[in-house]
Design a protein around this nucleic acid. Structure first.
Length: 423
RNA sequence: GGAGUGGUGGCCGAGCUAGGCCGAAGGCGCUCGCCUGCUAAGCGAGUAUACGGCAUUAAACCGUAUCGAGGGUUCAAAUCCCUCCCACUCCGCCA
């Protein structure tokens, strides 16, 4: 959520940056509502003040045995007016709230302007795509030959886009999770394991609601949602809190299963592990003082890249343009890993700073050392990494001609020293 | 799921069946100052947030709101009534 005061003071910027995203918003309407709100509140506060004063007098007069009927009646009428005004105020505020919740974050100045993903910018490339002496197979073929992923049975017990990991598939997935958590922990990220089901407040806090309800699995009778990313539960652990400046930055790494309805992606990536309704992910989440968020984003990105470098998987980093960046984000880097079978890079991580956008929604604040000033913190998060897609990348990049898959050196300690996965 | 108890400021905890003098006693913690040959103790002061008035910012000041949330009664509610949410205890069930 953006600060209404900021919007009013910086209308031109807000309008331009919202347009850069390709988003529509009725700024005039919002500001008119705010002006109306201010006027009415000032008026009503005066009425309330009057009532409070008179009410105290009534108490005194009555104690002295004086007559209060006339003044009482006057206050009753004033009370009706106050109630009526309060109702109008509540309506205006609800309308403003609704508008603000649907207004995306402002992208940072350095974010390239562009209309969609075709205008994202490659900002870094690491490693060389491996040359194969044979035709590299797609991960679903590799996995089925090795009997480590069972797509049909996964579908049988749930529906399409659900997969069962079998034997070494399950072990490899678990090895990746542990490897990533351990690696991040060494860099100062504190591990957390948080709820997979969260309430609507949490979803609103990080920006999934109200706008992206169709993307979420919902447990209707309990009013709970399955998290699409650990970002939701971990960030909201601090909602409503005022954190001491000395405790920042907070850095967390968190494993979770993630659940996404993938509404509107019919027919896209229907085969294999790339786009699942349920997938595993290790997420990095940070809460920082505003002045530190930029440096922390760079560090976050490097932590995510570090996983791929350690696994020796070729990747590139994309700076998302204004038209492709996420709703709550102010700046996002996507990391894309090389997939030989597709002969292209595929997204495996998304690292963002949300500036104070989520913090304002979730009310995450910090108190400065001087003890007086309270302000909104900055939140950041990034995948470090998506486990399923990492498994895909490992299978494809480390595949051998005989159908076996070499285990990346960094993962061997997590698989009892195993060097090759064979059928 | 059944029965019961309870939700007050960073924490603990008064006040809630006599509704006004309660944004709320007291204690702890914390901050600043004083004092003390160290540590501890002692003394003094301060210690919520949001919105509005505020003129261009900030401070100060004033007003309003907030005692789990929402609604109601009343001139006036932490205090009375209703609904909901949450926590804890016991029973049942269960990894």
């Amino acid at each position: 959520m953006l600060d209404i005061k900021y919007i009013i003071a910086n209308q031109d910027i807000a309008r331009k940056k919202t347009a850069d995203r390709g988003a529509q918003f009725d700024f005039d309407g919002l500001m008119a509502l705010d002006a109306e709100r201010k006027k009415l509140q000032a008026k009503n506060d005066d009425l309330k003040s009057e009532r409070n004063t008179v009410s105290k007098e009534i108490g005194k007069i009555r104690k002295d045995g004086g007559d209060i009927s006339e003044i009482q009646e006057k206050m009753r009428i004033a009370g009706d007016e106050i109630d009526a005004n309060d109702r109008i105020l509540a309506e205006i505020q609800a309308k403003m709230e609704d508008m603000l919740l649907n207004l995306p974050n402002l992208v940072k100045d350095e974010v390239p302007v562009g209309k969609d993903e075709t205008e994202n910018v490659v900002s870094k490339t690491w490693g060389e795509p491996k040359k194969f002496s044979f035709e590299p197979k797609a991960h679903w073929d590799i996995a089925e030959n090795l009997k480590i992923l069972d797509f049909e049975r996964g579908t049988k017990v749930a529906k399409s886009r659900f997969t069962a990991y079998m034997g070494m598939g399950a072990k490899l997935e678990r090895a990746l999770i542990n490897f990533m958590l351990d690696t991040h922990a060494q860099r100062g990220y504190k591990e957390v394991l948080a709820p997979y089901l969260v309430n609507a407040d949490a979803m609103r806090g990080t920006g999934q609601l109200p706008k992206f309800e169709e993307e979420l699995f919902k447990c209707e009778r309990d009013g709970l949602y399955l998290i699409p990313t650990a970002e939701v539960s971990v960030t909201n652990l601090y909602s409503g809190e005022i954190i001491s400046e000395t405790e920042l930055p907070i850095r967390h790494c968190s494993y979770s299963a993630c659940f996404r309805r993938e509404a509107g992606s019919h027919g896209k990536d229907v085969r294999g592990l790339i786009r699942q309704h349920q997938f595993n992910k290790v997420e990095l989440v940070k809460i920082t003082a505003p002045e530190d968020s930029e440096a922390e984003l760079a560090e976050l990105l490097d932590s995510a890249e570090n996983i791929l470098r350690t696994l020796e998987l070729p990747y590139r980093v994309m700076t998302l343009c204004s038209g492709d960046i996420g709703f709550s984000s102010a700046k996002t880097f996507d990391i894309e890993v090389w997939l030989p079978s597709a002969n292209t890079y595929r997204e495996i991580s998304s690292c963002s700073t949300f500036t104070d956008y989520q913090a304002r929604r979730a009310s995450i604040r910090l108190r400065r050392k001087d003890g007086k000033k309270v302000e909104f913190a900055h939140t950041l998060n990034g995948s470090g990494l998506a486990i399923g897609r990492t498994l895909v990348a490992v299978l494809e990049n480390y595949q051998n001609e005989d159908g076996s898959v070499t285990v990346p050196k960094a993962l061997r300690p997590y698989l009892g020293g195993l060097e090759v996965i064979t059928a």
